[in-house]
Simulated assay, not measured.
Amino acid sequence: MKVLVTGGSGFIASHCLKTLLARDHTIVTTVRSAEKGEAILAAYPESSKGQLSYVVVPDIAQEGAFDHVVISDPPFDAVLHTASPFHFRFQDSKELLDPAIHGTKGILRAIKDNAPSVKRVVITSSFAAITSTDGHPDVYSESQWNPVTYKEGIEDRSKTYRASKTLAERAAWSFMEEEKPGFSLATLCPPWVFGPPIHVPESQAALNTSNAYFAMLIHGGWKEKLPPTGTWLWVDVRDIALAHVRAMEVPEAGGKRFFITAGHFDMKDVAEIAKMRVPEYADKLPTKLTSDKPNPLYGFDNGRSKEILQLEYLSLETSVVDTLKFLQSHDI
């Protein structure tokens, strides 16, 4: 298949590229600069000529940003839309909200109008689009939606990221219902995403959000107190990448939303694994480790991901150790 992947230099997207290449798909990925694009090509010198290329899209929220991108010869069969900002350094809430919402609607419109060959679109959503801060259900699954509004996302910074993911995904499903395009949609909702990155970041400051926590551990930032867990569910980046590719490949995935999680965890679990498996960091951690899991803690239902996408989730131990070893080996 020929696949368009948006935001190819991102943490999840870079693993999607690796998985797609391993399964012999041909890929074009969008990047914000030629520099990022060349870095991606350099990371895969073994890929056959023409199997991986890039196109520059400086601003995914711009009107018509994807119109020329989706036109290809030979044409695209599928699109993985992963591009959406995830950080807490924004000055204006619209820096997260508008690219997420407008970028999602924009690419779906571009595909419908200009790429009739595309039969499957997969969008990276988030557990943020499922979870609620106003009280949790007994069990979380794909059936729940975060009730957050755009107004709340603008006015309350603690809700901005959740609003960006929720409203972007809602916009995608609304588009499908109203426009009835010639392609089917699948969305994926992961919680915390752990695991080693593909690309070596230039500095600790350039790390993605989750890996920044592991770098803090290495550099003694957990010594006095463990950071708050926040969301007591996680998944490894290699599993969410495989989920994207299988959601693209498996016919039964069309029209479905997937909750992608390996299960419960807290930062105490991460610290215990670090002490046991990477003991050189034991002195970077508190002597006494305490859990911040609430009791009772909400459950989760990831059955659809196992049944339809055939996911077999990596263990937390594997994810934590691989991440710490990567950061250690690159002196980050």
Rank of each mutant, 00 (worst) to 15 (best):
A128P: 01
I12W: 08
T160N: 12
H15L: 10
G64I: 14
M176F: 07
R238G: 00
E202L: 11
E95Y: 09
L324A: 07
I107V: 15
N302M: 04
P296A: 05
R32L: 10
C16W: 03
A186M: 09
T231I: 15
D301I: 03
K105L: 15
S117I: 12
R23G: 06
M176N: 09
A253P: 10
E155F: 03
E46T: 13
E169R: 02
D73A: 10
A215Y: 01
S329G: 14
L207D: 05
R170P: 01
L21E: 02
P201S: 07
H25G: 08
E142K: 00
D138W: 04
E307K: 15
R170N: 12
E312R: 11
E152H: 03
E272I: 00
V320K: 01
G303P: 12
S164G: 11
R89A: 13
N302L: 00
G255D: 11
V148S: 02
K151F: 02
S305K: 07
M1D: 13
E307F: 10
R257S: 05
T29S: 10
I111M: 06
E312S: 12
M248A: 12
V193D: 05
S210T: 15
T290I: 08
S126Q: 01
P191V: 10
G263N: 09
T133M: 07
R162I: 02
T290R: 06
L226Q: 03
A262L: 01
T30N: 05
L311K: 03
T30H: 09
L17M: 10
L80E: 04
T187N: 09
L324Q: 04
S84K: 03
A274R: 00
A282Y: 01
A205K: 15
Y313K: 02
S14F: 02
S291L: 06
D156T: 05
Q328P: 01
S319A: 13
A115E: 08
Q204N: 14
L21M: 04
G106W: 10
N114Y: 14
I101R: 01
A253Y: 10
E142W: 00
G7P: 10
G8M: 02
S47G: 04
A100F: 09
A262W: 03
R89F: 10
L242V: 13
V31L: 09
R238H: 04
F127M: 12
H219D: 13
G103R: 02
L41R: 13
F326K: 05
V235D: 01
Y313M: 03
P137W: 13
Q51R: 11
F127N: 11
S117E: 11
T30R: 01
L4I: 12
